[in-house]
């Protein structure tokens, strides 16, 4: 019984983390039709900044890490993606590839290829006992942070002018512009939100693993991509659900798969992604986009 509960907590925690990754991808894809492969490097660089400032009081560390994500995301938009605004999503994927490679190699040039350990929020890995289940504090933090971000994002999107503009631009970018929504500003806003989510993911990932490596962002961005596919590309609620589902299924497979198949759980998971593209390309929660955008 407590075993089951333990797995459920694991699943929910991993699902929350994956939801953050997927949202970071989806918010940009929705507005700009840009599939940002370099989202992983937003996470990586933020994590390295965390390493540098980890001696400071923790709230300051968190703020600086998030700020790194936002600033770097804005720079990416300004210096890379803005030049290919008219390109199709497959081309933006290649641009993202190039930006990702560039940042990663510069990172290797400056900090070396070897992984580093970071002493940050180590106490959060200690478990607390709730109703007989021992739950690592970090899992609770992850779920809590995700919940707060989801609520915050929902409020932003429904209550503020810029949020309504973001949703409108996701549905029909051209029409939003015809009503006076400034395209550069709205895309930059989407990147800033994505950067904030990447910074958050960096904090949580670093606290969880305690190690950093220049290539740590790549698996994260793949998860984000595939989760948005499962949830429905361009749909923010879809991305959150897709990430959550991907996390839960990952944990379930760890628990339920027979030993022989266990090493192939990623393959199985990504085969499901391809199947999803084939049989339900609109995802679990389809985005409402005007036909001409897709």
């Amino acid at each position: 019984m407590s075993d089951v509960a333990q797995h459920l907590v694991n699943a929910a925690s991993l699902g929350s983390l994956y939801a953050l990754l997927a949202l970071g991808i989806a918010v940009i894809f929705g507005v700009g039709r840009i599939l940002n492969f370099a989202h992983g490097q937003l996470i990586t660089v933020s994590a390295y900044v965390l390493l540098v400032v980890s001696g400071l009081p923790w709230p300051l560390v968190v703020v600086l890490t998030l700020l790194t994500g936002v600033v770097l995301a804005l720079a990416m938009e300004r210096f890379a993606f803005r030049h290919v605004r008219r390109a199709d999503p497959a081309t933006t994927l290649i641009v993202g590839f190039a930006v990702a490679a560039l940042i990663q190699e510069i990172l290797v040039l400056s900090v070396g290829a070897r992984s580093k350990t970071v002493d940050f929020a180590t106490s959060t890995t200690l478990p607390v006992d709730i109703a007989g289940i021992s739950i690592p504090r970090l899992d609770l933090v992850t779920m809590g942070v995700t919940a707060v971000l989801l609520i915050g994002l929902t409020l932003l999107l429904t209550r503020t002018t810029v949020g309504i503009q973001l949703r409108a631009a996701s549905e029909d970018f051209g029409m939003a512009r015809l009503l006076g929504v400034r395209s550069t500003r709205i895309v930059a806003t989407a990147f800033a939100i994505s950067g904030l989510l990447a910074g958050t993911a960096a904090v949580l990932l670093t606290a969880k693993s305690g190690t950093l490596a220049p290539e740590m962002g790549t698996p994260a961005v793949l998860i984000g991509f595939f989760a948005t596919v499962i949830g429905g590309m361009g749909s923010l609620p879809g991305a959150a659900v897709g990430g959550f589902v991907l996390g839960v299924v990952t944990v379930l497979m760890q628990v339920l798969l027979p030993d022989g198949l266990l090493p192939y759980r990623e393959s199985l998971l990504f085969t499901c992604v391809i199947a999803m593209l084939l049989f339900r390309p609109q995802g679990i929660l389809p985005a409402a986009t005007a036909g001409q955008r897709v």
């Binding site: 999503p89 497959a90 393959s267 391809i274 593209l277 390309p281």
Partner: peptide
């Protein structure tokens, strides 16, 4: 199955394929 896809779906599916081959 794969060639039923085009555009961004094809790009993502083939990326998934790369990950799967690497994993195997």
């Amino acid at each position: 199955p794969l060639m039923r896809l085009s555009g961004i779906a094809a790009a993502i599916a083939t990326l998934a394929l790369l990950v799967i081959v690497g994993d195997v």
